[in-house]
Amino acid sequence: MPEIREYELFEVHEPVSQTIPFVYNSPHSGRIYPPEFIAQSRLEGIAIRRSEDHYVDELFGSAVALGAPLLAANFPRAYLDVNREPYELDPRMFDGLLPPYANINSLRVAGGLGTIPRIVAENMEIYARRLPVQEGLDRVEAVYKPYHAALRRLIARTHVQFGFGVLIDCHSMPGNVRVAGCTARPDFIIGDRYGTSASAELSRAAIAILEEMGFAAIRNKPYAGGFITEHYGRPSRGLHALQIEVNRAIYVDEVTLEKREDFAAVAEAVTGFMRQMAEYVEKFAGDRALAAE
Results as ranks from 00 to 15, higher is better:
residue 121 A to N: 10
residue 122 E to V: 11
residue 122 E to S: 12
residue 122 E to R: 14
residue 122 E to P: 06
residue 123 N to S: 12
residue 124 M to G: 10
residue 124 M to H: 09
residue 124 M to Q: 15
residue 124 M to I: 10
residue 125 E to W: 11
residue 125 E to A: 15
residue 126 I to M: 08
residue 127 Y to H: 06
residue 127 Y to V: 07
residue 128 A to F: 06
residue 128 A to K: 15
residue 130 R to C: 11
residue 130 R to N: 11
residue 131 L to G: 05
residue 131 L to W: 03
residue 133 V to T: 13
residue 133 V to C: 04
residue 133 V to I: 06
residue 134 Q to H: 11
residue 134 Q to M: 09
residue 134 Q to R: 15
residue 134 Q to V: 14
residue 134 Q to Y: 03
residue 135 E to M: 07
residue 135 E to R: 10
residue 135 E to K: 07
residue 136 G to E: 02
residue 137 L to V: 10
residue 138 D to I: 14
residue 139 R to Q: 04
residue 139 R to W: 06
residue 139 R to H: 08
residue 139 R to E: 05
residue 139 R to F: 06
residue 140 V to Q: 04
residue 140 V to C: 03
residue 140 V to A: 09
residue 141 E to R: 11
residue 143 V to N: 04
residue 143 V to L: 14
residue 143 V to H: 02
residue 143 V to T: 10
residue 143 V to C: 10
residue 143 V to E: 05
residue 144 Y to K: 00
residue 145 K to F: 04
residue 145 K to I: 06
residue 145 K to N: 09
residue 146 P to V: 06
residue 146 P to K: 08
residue 146 P to N: 01
residue 146 P to S: 01
residue 147 Y to M: 06
residue 147 Y to A: 03
residue 149 A to D: 11
residue 149 A to G: 08
residue 149 A to K: 13
residue 149 A to Y: 09
residue 149 A to C: 12
residue 150 A to G: 03
residue 150 A to V: 02
residue 150 A to T: 05
residue 151 L to K: 00
residue 151 L to S: 00
residue 151 L to G: 00
